[in-house]
Design a protein around this nucleic acid. Sequence first.
DNA 1: CGTATGACGTGGC
DNA 2: AGCCACGCCATAC
Length: 113
Amino acid sequence: MKEEYLRVFAAIAAIPPGRVASYGAIAARAGLPGRARLVGRLLGEVPDGMVLPWFRVLRSSGQIAMAPGSRGYREQCRLLKAEGVEVKNGRVPLSRFGLDADIDHAIWGMPES
DNA sequence: CGTATGACGTGGC
DNA sequence: AGCCACGCCATAC
């Protein structure tokens, strides 16, 4: 497993309950700006035994990335709602639940030292 | 070695 | 809101 991938998993694991983050934000936090696609790909092949709050990762628009109606989609909605995140038509209002730059700083720590 | 395909993002219209 | 073009890059064929 490449060290870069572990940083992606770590960034995902750091999303606090009741909040969500975009693929792009996760990639950036892992030191891989512009590589949101990699994050999406990795979520499709999480190592066995590794538990991650994958459901807290959304598109930059707040939309759930999985195909509407699919199993994962419904599961994601359920898990998010279960921890108090508002999901309407597969979309979450990032203005209230998303980690923006400032909050990232507070929760994830100093950007680059 | 090209081409296509994504749990993506941004900017333009 | 939508659509499109690009940029991105690991994998699969």
